[in-house]
């Protein structure tokens, strides 16, 4: 048996998903939204290296934050590539650094992926809370 790798780097591409939009429109930022949005698709090879299976939790960590989501294999992806629906989850990872790129990097995110025992990040934790006077 191959030794499990603890963490790998992936280039995440994000994209709109109609099912995420529908969940938000129908029920707001609730359970259905979380189920549809808190997913990352990885290549079967990377899933194997991390020794994880469909539905296992992974922690994604990028320059501006981290989230825990469910992993799923997608045979269309190459090693080192990932795909994620555009949502509050992916936005937590995205950064805006105009010195590097003129737009917020919402659609292409460098992130590390590591298996975790933690539960999926609740949507509430992804909302910007402000001290309301």
């Amino acid at each position: 048996m191959e030794q499990a790798v603890h963490a790998i780097d992936v280039n995440l591409v994000t994209c709109e998903s109609i099912y995420v939009s529908l969940a938000a429109l129908r029920e707001g930022l609730g359970q259905a939204y979380r189920d549809r949005a808190a997913v990352v698709h990885l290549s079967p090879a990377d899933m194997k290296r991390l020794q994880i299976r469909d539905g296992d939790r992974v922690e994604l960590t990028a320059a501006s934050g981290s989230v825990v989501v469910a992993a799923e294999a997608d045979g269309d992806l190459e090693e080192g590539a990932g795909r994620m629906p555009l949502s509050l989850y992916s936005n937590r990872l995205a950064e805006y650094r105009p010195s590097r790129w003129p737009l917020p990097a919402l659609r292409l995110i460098q992130s590390t992926v590591s298996p975790t025992g933690k539960g999926v990040t609740p949507v509430e934790d992804l909302l910007v809370r402000r001290t309301v006077a």
């Binding site: 501006s64 934050g65 509050l88 936005n91 937590r92 990872l93 995205a94 950064e95 805006y96 917020p104 919402l106 992804l126 909302l127 910007v128 402000r130 001290t131 006077a133």
Partner: peptide
């Protein structure tokens, strides 16, 4: 904008009134 932009940007709004 709080859903469309990175939270790391929106957190800069700090105590501005919205």
């Amino acid at each position: 904008p709080f859903a469309a932009l990175p939270q790391s940007v929106m957190e800069n709004l700090g105590d501005a009134k919205i």
